[in-house]
């Protein structure tokens, strides 16, 4: 029973926050709404027994990624006029319609695929550090090592982009 209440609480909050991300007029408000959505999703991960992922979600997304967004927005410090120019919603109606259509079909596909399916109960498996680490360093060792290359490439790319001078054009 408690699970149901918490699910609807956090799901509703996450949806409202996501709508605010898309509709708010100030970029800073969008970032802060996304922060709320991230925390709601982290709580849903806890409900699903994925404790490590919930912690990672808060540490990495809320702690690193969104701070980076805030940092960039404040660094650029857009004035009202520039913001107004980016606020023109091109094809607002068409975009919303297409997204709505896709959303309806996604929900219908999920509902239909799950309709006659009774999922067999499986033993409760929680995502503890031990279980995840065992998988990460055996079955998924190669992808794990490859992510370090990806991050290295991202760091080099970001530094190169940031150091570009006007004479390098």
């Amino acid at each position: 029973m408690a699970e149901t209440i918490f699910f609807y609480l956090f799901a509703g909050l996450a949806l409202i926050a996501a709508l605010l991300v898309v509709t708010s007029r100030q970029p800073v408000h969008s970032v802060l709404s996304l922060l709320v959505a991230m925390f709601c999703l982290a709580s849903l991960f806890v409900l699903l027994g994925a404790y490590v992922i919930a912690a990672l979600q808060i540490l990495l997304y809320a702690g690193a990624v969104l701070v980076l967004f805030l940092f960039v927005i404040m660094l650029l410090n857009l004035d009202r006029e520039t913001l107004a120019r980016t606020r023109s919603f091109t094809l607002r109606g068409a975009g919303t319609l297409v997204a709505l259509a896709l959303g309806m079909s996604l929900v219908r596909i999920v509902a239909r695929a799950m309709a006659g399916r009774s999922v067999p109960p499986v033993p409760e498996q929680t995502g503890t550090v031990e279980r995840l680490a065992q998988l990460l360093f055996t079955k998924y060792l190669l992808p794990f090592e490859l992510t370090s290359f990806l991050i290295l490439a991202a760091i080099i790319g970001a530094i190169t982009l940031a150091r570009l001078k006007d004479s390098d054009r």
Partner: peptide
């Protein structure tokens, strides 16, 4: 996912 997509398109 749909809300995110709508945001990207608008």
């Amino acid at each position: 996912f749909t809300i995110g997509l709508a945001g990207i398109m608008t």
